[in-house]
Design a protein around this nucleic acid. Sequence first.
DNA 1: CTTTCTTCCTAGACATCCTAGGAAAGGATC
DNA 2: GATCCTTTCCTAGGATGTCTAGGAAGAAAG
Lengths: 195, 195
Amino acid sequence: MARAGLTAARLTEAAAQLADEVGLDRLTVSALARRFGVKDASLYSHIKNLRDLRVRIAVLAAEQMSEEIALAVAGRAGKDALIAFADAYREFALAHPGRYAATQLQFDPEEVADSVGGRRGVELTLGVLRAYGLEEPDLTDAGRLLRAAFHGYIQLELNQGFAHNRPVRQSWTRSLDALHVALSNWPAQPTGSTE
Amino acid sequence: MARAGLTAARLTEAAAQLADEVGLDRLTVSALARRFGVKDASLYSHIKNLRDLRVRIAVLAAEQMSEEIALAVAGRAGKDALIAFADAYREFALAHPGRYAATQLQFDPEEVADSVGGRRGVELTLGVLRAYGLEEPDLTDAGRLLRAAFHGYIQLELNQGFAHNRPVRQSWTRSLDALHVALSNWPAQPTGSTE
DNA sequence: CTTTCTTCCTAGACATCCTAGGAAAGGATC
DNA sequence: GATCCTTTCCTAGGATGTCTAGGAAGAAAG
């Protein structure tokens, strides 16, 4: 009997592919085993469990995504960088919805301790924002707003959450213009606020 | 044998509760039946299937959420209304994560045709935005940005997606300030753009 | 009381995750 | 080449879940 030649890496890649095709929630160990012509129990030599498989997808996706964003942002600053970042972010998510969904899972910190992807994503965001002259804690606040807006847009777009009367692309572009305005005129700290 | 007195409405309410407690993804028909001291098969007289149950939760949640937002926004305009809207939105989502997650499912249009909650949510958003003097298509674009930003924030906050060094509440407040700036200075249409 | 309707049941098919323990492929070693 | 070892993949099976089919036991209406 010939072997399928399974490894954790190959499984993760195929699982990411499968998740992109059918959705992360419908990625099952059984389906993945089927794709390799193998019994489901066989996969458990390579992955701990379904959860572990998803985390591996997330780590892979974070790396690939931050790589593409880094390429897009390289050599740009200010609004150019913002738009390049946002477009790369959106394009990755739309092209790889399963991988993207995986990046949004809740992780235990140690699960992803050795993941460079997540860390680099944060750094890239901060890089874009520094061009607007922001400093802490505004940097954190603005970063969170950007991440939220990007993520929210993707999520709503993937879930068909937008009515179809106006192309999403156009709203996206205008929203980025608006975010640029917000970043360029970041409101001053409320003085003496203990909040 | 005494009867449990199940109805679709009671099941939906209990399911929403359960989803808030354990997460929408871990809401199962079995668990819901257990909670009523009843066999799982018994529920299928009242609900079509698990999917149907989730949609019912979504409809319920949309109604409750838009109700609370309407109360918060009533009598306010401009930045006051924006902040009231946003805070009510966030508070509902954090207090009812299962219900909130249900509102983010993908629906077939007919599934939720008779739902007032969704429609009212859109109207409330547009109401807030009109105070900024926006008109179509800016109204749509700005509405999408707001929805995305709110949703993204909630999602990231629920998933512990934010590092813990700075309280989310503070970033949220500053981000709303920034969105107010963006809405108040909504960029002019790109002239002659066919995009 | 009897009929009818609804509610809830048992039984069971099927899918999924995952564990335990065994067999067999492929190297490494003698 | 024969033997040992490691890894890969298997069969078997328990646990939990969704959902259908058909039956029995309440409640309500005649």
